[in-house]
């Protein structure tokens, strides 16, 4: 694999994904979880642009990436709203502390 610019970006995507999934596995704080999800989505956004570029369809890739950013902001807003409610009603942001549903 040669070190051209596309591969560098690809490497970046993989790195971001790895960081994101690792974060998802170890994080318990709700705000941090939202941040980690954002990292994952950003990795995907870059991947989409990269895929557009690689297939000679950069415009499509970019427009999709932009849409994903918007759509994902909505998810982040909902997630943060839930986190606020959790903090308000339980006094903590640690998901493992309020966890009662199992079995």
């Amino acid at each position: 694999m040669t070190l051209n610019s596309l591969n560098v970006v690809l490497f970046g995507v993989i790195l971001l994904l790895a960081v994101g999934f690792y974060g998802l596995l170890i994080t318990r704080n709700l705000i941090k979880i939202v941040l980690v999800l954002q990292v994952l989505v950003k990795a995907v956004v870059i991947a989409l642009v990269l895929a557009g570029k690689q297939s000679g369809n950069l415009g499509l890739g970019q427009s999709i990436a932009a849409t994903v950013i918007v759509a994902d902001t909505v998810v982040a807003v909902v997630a943060l709203a839930l986190a606020v409610q959790v903090r308000r009603h339980t006094g903590t942001l640690d998901l493992s502390k309020i966890s009662t549903l199992r079995g």
């Binding site: 297939s55 997630a79 339980t90 549903l101």
Partner: peptide, 28 residues
Amino acid sequence: LEAGMKYLVQSATGSVLVLLGIALVLGN
């Protein structure tokens, strides 16, 4: 709230995976 939050995180993870899949299809 706990149920909603877990649902959100797992679902969002799934949706990231789908997007990755879409990126791969687009690239190929």
